[in-house]
Design a protein around this nucleic acid. Structure first.
Length: 494
RNA sequence: CGGGGAGUGGCGCAGUCCGGUAGCGCAUUCGCUUUGGGAGCGAAGGGUCGCAGGUUCAAAUCCUGUCUCCCCGACCA
């Protein structure tokens, strides 16, 4: 049919070309555009609304765990970055550097004014540990000043070589929590607490199941003692690191000389954590749930949860349908549901259906003359594409419940998909075969960076994490035969 | 940053080899008919062909440089 041909033309089938499908979904759902600057994106209202919903849910979770928001500068003095040795090493290659402060006009155009060269160059923050720890030095004298539990919502810049909308852009939006503690135990506890916040958010809001774990040394954040992460598995069998929580030890306290006087009178270095999630989550959301018709959003993050499409031929029918639909709209609103009545008359219902599907609206209600006559309405689920006729009486209650059913079903469907693409293997030959198929693979590893590197070179798979929960049975490394404490999680990743 | 592909009205593309002054589909505007899965007919508007140089009587087309996007590698949330 022509309609199907057109739909097929707009969004590439996932099986044909997953990358192209991803780009098509982002475009058709109007989430983001490419910008004139390489690797940067324009986040459009549809995309930003998702981010705003993520933000407000996360922000509440941060506040509920005792954190406050603050804001630190975009620019970091170059000298700050070099204070923590591994931190510089990790970020040096991807920093935007500001060297001049003004332009001058040159016959119709502008060029950098060489006389405005800065005495000390500024770095556009790739992350804010350094400038924040410089501030903390002044804020902390006594154990009574601790802990400091701060988060900031900000943009950061990392000069990436290869970019993809939401998944890896040169500038991205994120939150970064930075906490300071009097004891190691408390800092470790904070690190794990925030990891748990991320896990909860991913599962309960994004309906995206994740594995929590610790990164190996080679995957660790530059400057951290331990990096914990949430890892999820996308539809194409590649893993996505969706969030990280770092135990920073005393590394930044030492680099920035941040000490406090403890209750025993001794001067001690402060213990630190930092943790973040970014607009990358939107990429994860897309690749967890969406289908060949476009975006699929979980109700808890959908900017519009329910859309009502009126169907009519004559003006008289239009009036009748709208009169019938408005109380439905009001009842849903009264229940706190984000509902929109799509009464645009320049589009036909079928066109609207396709558009709402492309944009991932979880539930559609269609109301036509037939429904007015019978006291019904048609509801269609975005996640399963199921349609059914329901009675108008009691519909608000039913729809409210259905939204939470959809939320749960999406998590369950994602869980099943991931379970079906998770394997346990015991020998390297089998590993090589299985990893080709994509998915999560658990296997024994001897704990050395050499073996990890060998596996990466030969199979393109990396250790996503050493899982916190799961099979703790010791064994022998699939490559070297050396002892292994427990299986670790491998995958090819984004 | 290396290899490959691409950039032409808002979107998708043809035209480029062989230089002759830009076209198609969708979208937009107006009118009429339509409306339960991307409507039909008629009319209209919209492009210095990514950008900058060069060759030429003449450049979307040839040459040089440059920017951006996509795919594959090396590097990363």
């Amino acid at each position: 049919m022509y309609a199907n041909l057109q739909m097929a033309k707009r969004i590439t089938n996932r099986k044909v070309d997953y990358s192209q499908w991803y780009l098509d979904v982002v475009k058709e759902a109007k989430l983001a555009d490419h910008s004139p600057v390489r690797g940067c994106m324009v986040i459009r209202p549809n995309g930003f609304a998702i981010w705003e919903n993520m933000k407000s849910a996360l922000d509440k979770m941060f506040k509920d765990t005792g954190h406050q928001n603050a804001y630190f500068p975009l620019f970091i003095p170059k000298s700050f970055l070099s204070k923590e040795a591994r931190h510089v090493e990790g970020f040096a290659k991807e920093c935007a550097v500001i060297t001049h402060s003004r332009l001058k006009s040159v016959d119709g155009g502008v060029e950098v004014d060489p006389e405005s060269k800065l005495d000390e160059e500024l770095i556009v923050r790739p992350t804010s540990e350094t400038i924040i720890w410089d501030a903390y030095r002044n804020w902390i004298q006594s154990y009574r000043d601790l802990p400091i539990l701060i988060n900031q919502w900000a943009n950061v810049v990392r000069w990436e070589m290869r970019t993809r909308l939401f998944l890896r852009t040169m500038e991205f939006l994120w939150q970064e929590g930075h906490t300071a503690h009097a004891s190691k135990e408390e800092a470790v506890e904070e690190t794990l607490q925030m990891l748990e916040v991320y896990r909860t958010f991913a599962e309960e809001y994004m309906a995206m199941p994740v594995v929590t774990g610790v990164k190996t040394e080679s995957e660790r954040f530059a400057g951290a003692v331990d990096t914990y992460c949430i890892e999820s598995l996308m539809q194409d069998g590649k893993a996505l690191q969706a969030g990280t929580s770092h135990f920073l030890g005393q590394n930044f306290a030492k680099a920035f000389d941040v000490k406090f006087q403890d209750s025993d009178g001794d001067h001690k270095y402060v213990w630190a954590t930092s943790w973040g999630v970014s607009t990358r989550l939107i990429g994860g959301l897309i690749m967890t749930h969406s289908d060949d018709n476009g975006l699929v959003l979980p109700p808890k993050l959908a900017p519009v949860q329910v859309v009502i499409v009126p169907i009519f031929k004559t003006d008289e029918q239009k009036r009748a349908v709208l009169d019938y639909a408005r109380p439905v709209l009001d009842e849903l609103k009264a229940k706190g549901i984000a509902v929109k009545l799509d009464d645009r008359d320049n589009f036909k219902p079928g066109w609207k259906f396709a558009e709402h599907e492309a944009q991932g609206i979880p539930l559609r209600i269609a109301i036509g003359p037939r429904d007015v006559k019978n006291g019904n309405m048609e509801i269609a689920r975005r996640d399963t594409l199921e349609k059914k006729i329901i009675n108008k009486e009691g519909s608000a209650e039913l729809i409210s419940e259905l939204l939470s059913t959809i939320q749960n079903d999406m998590l369950q469907a994602a869980n099943e998909r991931i379970d079906n693409h998770t394997r346990h293997v015991d020998n390297y030959e089998e590993f090589k075969t299985v990893i080709e198929e994509g998915g999560f693979v658990y296997a024994h590893w001897d704990g050395t960076a050499d073996t990890e590197e060998k596996i990466k070179e030969e199979t393109k798979a990396t250790i996503r994490c050493i899982p916190l929960k799961g099979d703790d049975t010791p064994g022998t490394c699939m490559v070297t035969g050396n002892p292994s404490e427990k299986k670790v999680l491998f995958a090819r990743s984004y």
